[in-house]
C-alpha cells in the first residue's frame, strides 16, 4: 500500500517492447532461412539441426509442465516412447510413414486427456514419481506387443522407401515444422487468458483457485500439450534413428536431458528452454564421446543450477537487464520507492 503510494504516476502496463518486436522479426527471418536449410546445410548439419529441433521441443514441453504448470514430471519418457511406438504401429498397419509420424503424437495427446484426470490429482513429488511409474508401465505394456519383440525392438522399415537425401530433408522439415508449431502454440497459450491463469497457478495454486482460476482445466491443457509435444519428439527421434528399442525410448535419461536443458536455460521463462536446448546440443556434440563422465557432468550441472542459479541462464539475464524477447507476460513499470530498494 505504501509502496504503491510512493510511486509517481500510475504504473504503465506494456506487453510489447521495441526489443521484443525486433526479436520476433528476426526470429521469423531465421525460421525462413532455416526452412531452406537442406538446400545449403549439407547432410551432416541437416541431421544435427534436426536433432536440435527435437531438443527444443523436449525442453519447451518440460518447461511448460514444470515452469508454468508447477508439475515436475520424471515420466515424460512415457510419451516420448509412446509417440515412437505408435508411429511404428501405424506404419505397420499400412499408414503412410510420414503421416504416421504426425498422427502418433496427436493420438498420444488424445490418450493423455483421460490420463490427466488421474495424474493431476497427484501433487508434488507424488506426481513426479507417479509419472515415472506410468512410464515404466507403458514400457512394459509396449514390450508385450508381439510386433515389438520385447527388448529386441523393430525398425521403421517403411521409411527406407525414401532415398537417404530425401528422407533427411523430410525429417528436417517435419522437425522444424513441429517445433515451430509447438513453440508457437505454447506462446499463444501463455499469452491468452489461460496463460495468465497458468502463471497465477505457478505462483500460488490455492490463491489462484480462490480468485476463480480454473486450476484443473488449466493444468490439464498444459499436461496434454506436454504429452503431445514429447510424443512428437519421440516420433521425430524415430524418424532419424529408424530403429525402435523400447529400452532406449522409455529411458528416464530423456527426462534427465529435459531437466538439464530447462534448468540451465531458465525454468519458467519462455526463451530459457530454447537457450538450454542449444547449449545441451553443443555440450553433447563436444562431450558425448566421454561417455559416463558426460552424464555425471549433466547431472552435476542440473544439481548446481537448481541450487544456485534457479532462474537459469536466460532467467538471470532477463532479470538483470529486464529483457524479454518473447512477450508472454505483461510488463509493469513503476519507480520503486528508494527506501524500499532493498526488497527486490
Amino acid at each position: 500500500m505504501k509502496g504503491a503510494k510512493d510511486c509517481e504516476g500510475a504504473p504503465a502496463v506494456r506487453r510489447w517492447s521495441p526489443l521484443s518486436i525486433a526479436a520476433i522479426g528476426s526470429l521469423v527471418a531465421l525460421l525462413a532461412l532455416l526452412a531452406f536449410g537442406p538446400a545449403y546445410l549439407g547432410s551432416y548439419l541437416t541431421d544435427r539441426l534436426t536433432t536440435l529441433f527435437i531438443y527444443v521441443i523436449m525442453a519447451s514441453m518440460w518447461n511448460a509442465l514444470a515452469g508454468y504448470g508447477g508439475l515436475v514430471s520424471v515420466g515424460q519418457q512415457a510419451f516420448f516412447g509412446l509417440g515412437a511406438y505408435l508411429a511404428i504401429r501405424l506404419s505397420y498397419a499400412g499408414v503412410n510413414v510420414y503421416l504416421a509420424l504426425v498422427l502418433a503424437p496427436l493420438i498420444v495427446g488424445l490418450f493423455s486427456l483421460p490420463l490427466s484426470s488421474f495424474a493431476l490429482r497427484l501433487r508434488g513429488g507424488e506426481f513426479a514419481i507417479g509419472m515415472w511409474v506410468l512410464a515404466e508401465l507403458a514400457h512394459l505394456l509396449v514390450n508385450l506387443d508381439g510386433l515389438v519383440q520385447g527388448e529386441t525392438g523393430i525398425s521403421l522399415i517403411a521409411i527406407s522407401a525414401f532415398a537417404p537425401d530425401a528422407r533427411r530433408s523430410y525429417n528436417y522439415w517435419l522437425a522444424l515444422g513441429m517445433m515451430t508449431l509447438l513453440v508457437v502454440l505454447g506462446f499463444f497459450l501463455l499469452r491468452s487468458r489461460t496463460g495468465a491463469a497458468i502463471q497465477a497457478i505457478r505462483d500460488n495454486e490455492d490463491a489462484a483457485a480462490s480468485v476463480g482460476v480454473r486450476v484443473f482445466a488449466t493444468k490439464r491443457l498444459i499436461f496434454v500439450l506436454a504429452a503431445a509435444g514429447c510424443a512428437a519428439a519421440g516420433s521425430l527421434m524415430l524418424s532419424t534413428l529408424v530403429s525402435f528399442q523400447p529400452k532406449t525410448y522409455f529411458s528416464v535419461q530423456w527426462t534427465a536431458y529435459m531437466l538439464f536443458m530447462t534448468l540451465v536455460g531458465g525454468l519458467g521463462t519462455f526463451e530459457g528452454p530454447i537457450v538450454g536446448a542449444v547449449l545441451f546440443f553443443l555440450v553433447e556434440t563436444m562431450f558425448a564421446d566421454t561417455g559416463v563422465w558426460y552424464l555425471i557432468g549433466l547431472g552435476a550441472t542440473a544439481l548446481i543450477f537448481s541450487l544456485f542459479v534457479p532462474r537459469g541462464i536466460w532467467g538471470t539475464i532477463s532479470d538483470r537487464f529486464g529483457i524479454q524477447l518473447m512477450p508472454v507476460g505483461y510488463r509493469l513499470r513503476f519507480r520503486v520507492p528508494s527506501n524500499a530498494g532493498a526488497t527486490p
Binding site: A256, L295, G299, A300, L307
Partner: peptide, 20 residues
C-alpha cells in the same frame, strides 16, 4: 527455494550418483 526445487536437485543428484 520452494516445493519443486528438492525434486530437481535430488534428481540431479541421482544422475550423478548412478553414473559415478
Amino acid at each position: 527455494s520452494g516445493p519443486l526445487t528438492p525434486l530437481l536437485s535430488t534428481f540431479g543428484l541421482a544422475v550423478v550418483l548412478d553414473n559415478s
